[in-house]
Nucleic acid binder design. Structure first.
Lengths: 201, 201
DNA sequence: GTCTATATAGAGATAGAC
DNA sequence: GTCTATCTCTATATAGAC
C-alpha cells in the first residue's frame, strides 16, 4: 500500500477541475521545454497562472503533480493500445497497429514523453499507477501473443522496452522522419517475436 | 567546443592519483547504492574519506566528478567491444561476442550503469566523451555490418539502444538470470539485423 | 480560495586556519 | 594539501493577510 499522490480535494466544480488541469499541463510544458531540472513548484505555479499557495491547495506536494501528469499520459496510451485489439484477425497488422499507437503517443510530445519516463523512475509509483502499467502490459501481451503464442510477461516488457529505446534514441539523435523510425521499430519488434532460423541463412 | 570537465590538476603523483580515483569510485558507489538524488558533493567527499575542501582541490565542480566516472566506464566498455573484433570470421559469433561484452559491462554493476546513463543525459558531454561515444559507435558498426552489410549509423545506434533497453527493463523488473536475458537480447538484435521474410511464415 | 511573504532545509562551492 | 566553518542560493512547503 503506497501513498496515493492524489489531488488534495476532489475538484468537483468545473472551475476547480480546470485549475487542476492547468497546473498539470503547466508541469508538462515545463518538462518538455526545459527538462526535469527546471520543474520546480514555483515555476509550475507561475506557468499555470496561479500562485504557489494555490498550487498547494490542489496538490499536497510536488510529486503528486507529476503523478497526476503520469496518470493522464498513461491512460491516453492505454486507450490507444486497446483500440489495436479491435483491428481484425491479422496478427502482423495488430502488431503494426500497436507500434503505431506507441509511436503516436511518443511522438505527440516527444520531449515530454522522455522526461516523464525519466521522472517516473524516481517517483515510487502508487497503486493506481501500478494498475495502469499492469493493464498496459496485459493489453500488449494479448496483441503480442497473436504473433508469438509462447510470449510471456517478459516478452511484452521487452517489446515495450524495444519500442521506447529505438524511438528515444532516434529522437535524441535528432531524427525527425517518423516513417523511417516506424520501419525500424517494426523490424525490431517483428524480428524479436519471430526469430529467423539462425542456422539457415 | 565544450567545457572539458577534467580534474583541476594533473594528478602526477601516485598519491594524488589514488585520491582522485577514490573520489570517482565513491561517486560510483553512492550512485549504485542510493541513486542520483543522493549524489551530493558532501556525500562523495565523506565516502571517499576526504573533506569537501579536498574534493574541490581535485575537481573544479560536481559535474567533472561524474564526467570522470563516465569516461572511466566508457573506456572500459570500448575495450570490451574492441576485443570482439578479433573473434574470427563468423558474423553471428562476432555479434554474440558483442552482446556478451555489453551484458558483462551492464551487469558488472547494473545499478550504477543505469544511474550513470541517466546522469549522462543531463551532463552536456565534452569533446572527449563525444569522441569516446563515437568510437564505441564505430566499433559496433563494424561488427554489425558483418551481419547486415547495409547497416548505417542509425542501425548501430538502434542495436545499442535495444541491448540497453532489454537489460535495463529486465534488471528493473527484478530479473537475475543473465542467461535468459542474454538469449532475449541476442534474439532481438539478430532479429533486427536479419528480418525474416514477412510475407513467408 | 487566492495571494504575498517567509520559514526551513539542503545543495554547491569557497575562505582561511593549520 | 587538507581540514572546518561558512557563504550563498534555491528548492519545497507553510502562514496568515485579504
Amino acid at each position: 500500500m503506497t501513498k496515493p499522490h492524489q489531488p488534495r480535494k476532489q475538484a468537483r466544480q468545473a472551475r476547480a477541475r480546470a485549475t487542476e488541469a492547468a497546473i498539470v499541463e503547466a508541469a508538462a510544458r515545463i518538462l518538455e521545454e526545459d527538462g526535469a531540472s527546471a520543474l520546480t513548484t514555483n515555476r509550475i505555479a507561475e506557468r499555470a497562472g496561479v500562485s504557489i499557495g494555490s498550487l498547494y491547495q490542489y496538490f499536497p506536494d510536488k510529486r503528486s503533480v507529476i503523478a497526476q501528469l503520469l496518470r493522464r499520459e498513461r491512460a491516453a496510451l492505454l486507450d490507444g493500445i486497446k483500440a489495436c485489439s479491435d483491428d481484425g484477425d491479422d496478427p502482423l497488422a495488430a502488431v503494426g497497429a500497436l507500434v503505431d499507437a506507441a509511436l503516436r503517443h511518443q511522438f505527440a510530445r516527444p520531449a515530454m514523453a522522455m522526461e516523464l519516463e525519466r521522472a517516473e523512475t524516481e517517483l515510487a509509483l502508487d497503486d493506481e499507477e501500478i494498475a495502469l502499467a499492469a493493464a498496459i502490459e496485459t493489453a500488449i501481451g494479448d496483441i503480442v501473443r497473436r504473433l508469438d503464442p509462447r510470449a510471456d510477461v517478459a516478452t511484452a516488457r521487452d517489446v515495450v522496452a524495444i519500442c521506447r529505446a529505438i524511438v528515444n534514441s532516434a529522437a535524441q539523435a535528432g531524427e525527425t522522419d517518423i516513417g523511417r523510425i516506424r520501419e525500424r521499430v517494426l523490424r525490431a519488434v517483428i524480428g524479436y517475436l519471430r526469430p529467423p532460423a539462425l542456422s539457415n541463412p
